[in-house]
Design a protein around this nucleic acid. Sequence first.
RNA 1: GGAGAGUUGCCGGAGCGGUCGAACGGGGCGGUCUCGAAAACCGUUGAAGGCUACGCCUUCCGGGGGUUCGAAUCCCUCACUCUCCGCCA
Length: 426
Amino acid sequence: MLDIRRMREDIEGVLTAMANRNLHNLPIRELVEKDDRRREMLSRIEDLRAQLNKESKEIGKKVKEGGDPAALKAALKIVSDEISELEKSMRELEEIIEADMLRIPNLPYKTTPIGKSAEENVVVKSATPEKLPFAPKSHLELAQRLNLFDFERASKLSGSGFPLYLGIGARLERSLWNLFLDTHTKNGYREVIPPLMVNRETARGTGQWPNLADDMYKVEGEELYLIPTSEVPIANIFRGEILDGSKMPYRFAGYSPCFRREAGSYGKDTRGFLRVHQFNKVEMIWLTLPERSYDDLEVMTGHAESILEMLEIPYRRLALCSGDIGFSSAKTYDLEVWSPFEQRWLEASSCSNCEDFQARRMALRFRREQGAKPELVHILNGSGLATSRVMVALLENHQTEEGSIAIPPVLRPYLCGKTHITIDDV
RNA sequence: GGAGAGUUGCCGGAGCGGUCGAACGGGGCGGUCUCGAAAACCGUUGAAGGCUACGCCUUCCGGGGGUUCGAAUCCCUCACUCUCCGCCA
């Protein structure tokens, strides 16, 4: 959520920022007008209430002294009724204002490139993938040959887009998130296992609700959603609290399965692991100070990159343009891994600085020192990493001519020291 | 699933329908004392918003609604916590 004062002060700037997100019909001006009306009502109500409080105390005194307060009571009843009526109208207006405010996305940061769509994202750095000395197979073909996953039976169990890992495939998947978590804890992150279902308030805090609610699975008969990313529960851990600024940044790394309906994306990357309804991800969350959040974004993104380097997977980093960053983000880096079979880059991580956008929604604040005013926390989130996309790159980049997979040294301790995954492992 | 109890400020813990933003204790901060420290004593210590602002006003005692001139105090409702029973991983 944006600060409505920001809109009041710089309405043109906000409109321009939204235009850079390809949003041209947001009710910004209307919101400011509504807020004007809200403020008028508020000060009227406060005046009346001051009068009511003061004179109600007079009644108390009079009663104690044995006087008859009937006349005063009648007069105050009128004031009281007027307050009730005004409050009702103001509540209605506030609900309208909030409903609109919740649907206005964050402002892109000044270093976010201006652009309309993914084509205008800026490559910050990029590996030049070596060409394999043989015709590379797709991750699907490799996985089927080695019997790592079973997509057919998975769809029997749950429908399309659900993974079923088997044997060494399951073990490999688990070794990936173990490596990720171990790396993060070495880097000083605190490990988390969050709830996989969250209530509406939590989904609202990070910005999934109401705008992106249709992308989440909702539990029937309950006000609960399956998390689309563990960013949602982790970033909300301290919702409504005031943190100790001297202990910040707070950094968390959490593994969870992620559930996404992917409504409306049929036909796009639907084969194999590229787009699924359930995948595994380790998420990094920073609750940090405003003045350092952009430096922290670099550090956090570097942590995700270091894992790709350990796994010897070619990757590149993009700065997403204003038209492509997510709803809550002010600045986002995407990390993309190379698919030798498809000869293209695949998104494996997204690292964002949401500044105080989510913190304002969830009233998450910190205090620099005793007695200082609470300030809004800056929240960063980053995938570190999504195992399914990494799995695709791992299989395809480390395949051998015979169709086995060379295991990068860093992963071998998690796989009993094995150097290759071969058909014999089945 | 059944029965009961509770939810108050940084923490513990009072609270009669009428100066209750809230007694009391602890903690924190400041001060007196001291060579310093402890003890003791004194003071201070929540948030949000508004204003013809170094002062005043409004709101907040789990969330929401109601009764009333007036509610932390009464009523309804929801959420959560705890205890006992049942069931289970």
